[in-house]
Amino acid sequence: MNRRSFLCAGSALTVAAVSGCVGRSLDEVQTAEASSGSSTQDSTDVDNNPDGVDEETISVGEDSFGPSRVILNVGGSVTWTNESDVEHSVTSYAYSSDAADWSIDQQLEAGGSATHTFDQAGIYQYYSTALGTFQMCGVVFVGNVDTGWNNPCLNE
């Protein structure tokens, strides 16, 4: 076989191989992936943190929230229960630039409680008006967000 024949044969094989890849529809690719068990999508759940829960109860004490940091799944809810003899609030506040833009100002009488459901991923920061912005605060991390925020409240 001379060089020209060899190159022509190689070119013909390359064209045949490439033409088998060209022209496949998206349905054909997805059907092939489904039958082989492979997928082009990432299998990790991008909406939730591995440590997230669906429900959390936060105790409102005389001078602190406990726990002051919780991690929820998207769609999860928090119930704040005032276990002190003083009226407190759960009031939204943005301590950091990555805080979610949300609004809550729930007054909690002694023994009272309030529940909020978080439908979107984000970092939700709050405080109690009974003691002030930097005296009693907390954070709810929802979904797969950075949980490295340091709470600036003095009672941590």
Rank of each mutant, 00 (worst) to 15 (best):
Y93M: 01
Y126V: 05
G112P: 03
G111V: 05
I71W: 00
T40L: 14
H88K: 08
A94S: 13
S39A: 13
V90C: 09
G61I: 09
F118T: 00
H88Q: 08
G111D: 07
S38A: 14
T91H: 11
S39I: 09
G20S: 14
R4T: 13
V139Q: 06
N73M: 00
C153M: 07
A121P: 08
L154Y: 01
A9K: 10
S64H: 03
E28D: 12
W80F: 10
G66Y: 03
Q135A: 12
W102G: 00
R69L: 03
A16L: 14
S84F: 06
T81C: 03
Y95D: 13
M1C: 03
S89N: 08
S59R: 13
S35R: 15
L154E: 01
S64L: 04
M1Q: 05
Y93Q: 07
G10K: 10
S38E: 14
T147K: 00
Q41G: 12
S92N: 08
D47W: 13
A121H: 01
A16S: 10
V86M: 05
T31H: 13
G148N: 15
I104N: 04
A100P: 04
Y124E: 11
T117P: 02
T79Q: 02
I58G: 03
D51P: 06
S96A: 15
E56S: 06
G75H: 01
G143S: 01
A32K: 10
S97N: 13
I71S: 02
D105E: 13
E56Q: 05
L26H: 11
R69T: 05
T133K: 15
Q125E: 15
T79S: 02
N155T: 14
D98I: 12
V86E: 12
G23T: 05
N155L: 02
S11I: 14
S96H: 13
Q41D: 15
A12T: 15
A100L: 11
T147F: 06
S35I: 12
L7F: 15
W80R: 04
A94R: 14
T129P: 08
Q135N: 12
E62L: 08
N48K: 04
P152Y: 04
S39K: 09
F6T: 08
Q107F: 03
Q125V: 04
T133C: 05
C8K: 14
V53K: 09
E156S: 02
E56Y: 01
S68Y: 07
T115V: 02
A114L: 00
N151F: 02
T31E: 15
C153A: 11
Y124I: 11
E87L: 02
L131V: 07
Y126G: 06
T115M: 03
F134D: 01
R4M: 12
C137F: 00
S77A: 06
G111Y: 09
E87C: 07
E55Y: 10
E87H: 05
T31I: 11
S36F: 11
S84I: 08
G75T: 02
T115K: 00
L13M: 08
G10W: 08
D51K: 11
E87N: 09
S11Y: 13
V46C: 03
V90L: 10
A99P: 09
G143F: 03
S5E: 15
